[in-house]
Amino acid sequence: MPARVSEALILRTYPFQEADLIVSFFTRDLGKLRGVARGARRTKSKFGAALERLSYVRAYYFQRPNRELVRLDQCELLRSPFELQRDYAAAVALDFLAEVSEQLLAPAEPSERFFRLLLAVIEHLRAEAAAGPWRAVTYFCLWAVRLSGFLPELRVSPESAGIAEEMLKKPVGELTPRNWSKQTAADLRRFLIRRIEEHLERRLITVPLLEAL
């Protein structure tokens, strides 16, 4: 019987021992946790596709006091971003979301709003795959910075400032329709990414590939 059950988003996995994975996952109720998924790399693993990056799962796990790593017993897949991988731009954007979340979220600190932000942005990427990832990425950057508590005064063009103002008032799916390209609010996106990198005191490794799209 697992000790805990949480809704979670898988942020990242690392190979561990012969067929195991270390999993960093963001739970709705307990924040970011890390755990070991035994046998997860085997073909007939009970985890199946549930441990792929940004899968939305119901995680069953056992947490021992004073142990950093929990034991992941089972992950029931609720929504998978796997189909989005067919779109290279969306795949790079998803990696960017996962990296920023993994870096910004403090261990074991719940953030319901950040959890809902990630779900909403992934859903938007899925629904608007043909429109490209730029609106979702910019929206995510703005809200990630705001929810992390270091949103500065936006020193961007008036057009981008207007977009940011709207983004802070409306859900991503209800923004005014416009033809988003890589250039749309690019100054706002880059400004926010720079703030994130300054806050983390390190470069985000997914950014060069994102900007190369």
């Binding site: 792929e52 971003p81 796997f82 991988q85 067919r86 779109d87 290279y88 795949a91």
Partner: peptide, 12 residues
Amino acid sequence: NPTVEGEATAAY
């Protein structure tokens, strides 16, 4: 591989 990385590589 049938992973997100493998699928992204195949798409590319």
